[in-house]
Design a protein around this nucleic acid. Structure first.
Length: 361
DNA sequence: GACTATTACGCCAACAGGGG
DNA sequence: CCCCTGTTGGCGTAATAGTC
């Protein structure tokens, strides 16, 4: 079921009108395409034939797209208003659906649903509780399961409404896989910035599913070079490690690339496992986790975590160990060492240290 | 509070390799 | 041979953290 090359038509889908149309006063021309069959959705706008007259804004899809990238959140409202209007124009109706009937998209994009985002989410829940759901979500019939749906746009709203135990207002539209992916990517780009690794995982999932790179790049709003790196990281860092770390919003491309470069050897994998199961790792937040693992793996310049050097007496018995770990090397006397010896050793060290320091200065 | 260092990120250009 | 796609190095800018 690989989604082939339908880039042209899908480009039109969400990017075409996304920003161009102001949120007001667009008396949606009656000439717009009729509610269309699944794949037969609006042909690309750049060929410009079926364009409704008086829509001067849609001349250069490139420029439009560029705008869309920068306008971010502001765009969102406009976009949703537009989508809604368009739906009405297309004769699509808004239905009330049971959230339980709606599956999430087939490609997961987020690594964790917690953290600071949760606050926003609760705010959204409150808002809906008080004012109701103002904007419908966009879903498509789930091609795999009769009678069920899949979210294209409005994951958060869906979750919020579901939490309130209400029915969700949704526009049902026949979307191709490509269109669904683009919608999802677009929603992400506009709404919450996905972290580097989230985008990487998302991209890799899409590629693995057979979408071609052009489309994936478009869905994520990245160019090929960036996509290449995203995939490199997704490839390089084992999935379970990524999951253990989480979204790490502050870790960007460079550091993830470096981390990916540290994997490959058995030793690295073992080390990383050891790290992610440690107590302090679990207790840390996602960014800290990244850093901890990164530190752990980049310490490989010193092959082994440097076993302590053993100091032995004439008969080969270990009477002390020297640990050169970290910035604070330390000497550890063997259990049962004569306290008098310890005193002597300390005195000796003190003398030598003074002499040493004097030489240095 | 001003300055500096670090990091993230988007972008470009050069390059490599595989078809046609 | 050129074209297309993907990879890599690197640059400039902006945001953030750290330092005095």
């Amino acid at each position: 079921m690989v989604a082939g090359n339908r880039k042209n038509e899908l480009k039109a889908l969400f990017s075409g009108g996304s920003v161009a149309t102001p949120p007001v006063a667009n008396p949606a021309p009656a000439t717009v395409q009729p509610p269309s069959a699944p794949a037969a959705r609006a042909p690309e706008t750049k060929s410009a034939e079926p364009l409704p007259a008086g829509e001067g804004a849609r001349t250069a899809s490139g420029a439009i797209k560029a705008m869309g990238l920068s306008l971010g959140a502001i765009t969102r409202e406009a976009e949703e208003a537009r989508a809604l209007r368009q739906a009405l124009v297309d004769g699509e109706r808004i239905l009330s659906l049971d959230p339980a009937l709606i599956d999430s998209s087939f490609v997961e994009d987020r690594l964790a649903i917690d953290g600071p985002e949760e606050e926003d989410f609760l705010a959204l829940v409150e808002s809906i509780r008080e004012n109701g759901q103002q904007v419908p979500i966009l879903v498509r019939p789930n091609p795999a399961k009769e009678g069920r749906y899949q979210t294209a746009y409005g994951h958060r709203r869906l979750r919020a409404v579901a939490r309130l135990g209400l029915k969700v207002k949704a526009i049902v539209r026949l979307l191709t896989d490509d269109e669904l992916v683009l919608a999802q990517g677009k929603e992400n780009a506009e709404r919450r910035n996905l972290s580097f690794i989230e985008r990487a995982t998302f991209a890799a999932a899409l590629v693995a599913r057979g979408f071609d790179r052009k489309l994936v790049g478009e869905a994520l709003s990245v160019q090929k070079s960036e996509l290449s790196r995203l995939l490199q990281v997704a490839e390089g860092v084992p999935q379970h490690i990524v999951r253990a770390i989480g979204p790490a919003p502050k870790a960007g491309r460079d550091r993830w690339m470096s981390l990916a470069g540290l994997f490959g050897s058995e030793a690295a994998t073992a080390k990383s496992l050891d790290e992610i199961y440690s107590g302090r790792f679990r207790a840390a937040d996602s960014d800290q986790r990244f850093q901890m693992l990164f530190n752990r793996l980049s310490r490989r310049t010193r092959p082994e975590p440097a076993r302590p050097e053993e100091l032995k007496d004439a008969e080969g018995r270990v009477f002390a160990r020297l640990h050169r770990v970290g910035r604070s090397p330390r000497i550890e006397f063997a259990a049962g060492t004569d306290p008098a010896f310890v005193d002597e050793a300390v005195a000796l060290l003190a003398r030598h240290y003074n002499a040493f320091a004097a030489k240095r200065t």
